[in-house]
């Protein structure tokens, strides 16, 4: 099986990685770059735990080949806080109690951040729609929705 050398930017840092053809972006982040904040929950694009931003848009990183990311810009949950300062969304989800086991949280944060980036004042329906591809088994979701509303100033 062939290997490919790719360069990409992850959380603002230029990376050079050798990846086999069948390696997904998820596997590369976790296994090659040690960025284990992005989680593997189903490997089939259903649960959203592996959601990262690829060139500014959220994707299931289990559904992207690493080799396709040559030249790409990737942001993972580790890249949300800047200089130790949490993203307002991270602050908000702490305040509203939208975190329990925490396994879905990285994907939820990325999906929600992407929503706020493209639509700073989403409706409640739009929030629920935007995170409907992120399964959470602990919280019952409403506190996550509250957190997004809080950042949007629509609560």
């Amino acid at each position: 099986m062939g290997y490919h050398r790719i360069t990409l930017t992850v959380n603002g840092v230029m990376e050079l990685v050798d990846v086999p053809s069948n390696m997904t972006l998820l596997q590369m982040l976790r296994e090659k770059l040690g960025l284990t904040g992005t989680k593997n929950g189903c490997a089939s694009g259903e649960c959203g735990a592996c959601t990262v931003m690829l060139n500014g848009e959220p994707v299931n990183s289990c559904m992207v080949l690493a080799v396709e990311c040559d030249g790409a810009d990737v942001v993972t949950v580790e890249g949300l806080a800047k200089n130790g300062q949490l993203d307002p969304l991270q602050e908000a989800i702490i305040e509203t109690g939208g975190v329990q086991c925490g396994f879905c949280t990285p994907g939820i944060l990325i999906s929600s951040r992407a929503l706020l980036n493209r639509k700073p004042k989403p409706t409640e329906f739009e929030i629920r729609e935007a995170i409907s591809g992120n399964l959470c088994r602990c919280t019952g979701y409403n506190r996550i929705v509250e957190a997004v509303k809080k950042v949007a100033g629509t609560e």
């Binding site: 284990t36 904040g37 989680k39 806080a81 949490l86 991270q90 702490i94 975190v99 944060l109």
Partner: peptide, 21 residues
């Protein structure tokens, strides 16, 4: 009071079994 484990969990720093190297 806020959860003890929450900052780790929102920053991706919390270690789960699959994350151990």
């Amino acid at each position: 009071v806020p959860r003890l484990d929450v900052r780790e969990k929102v920053t991706g720093a919390a270690v789960y079994a699959d994350d151990i190297q």
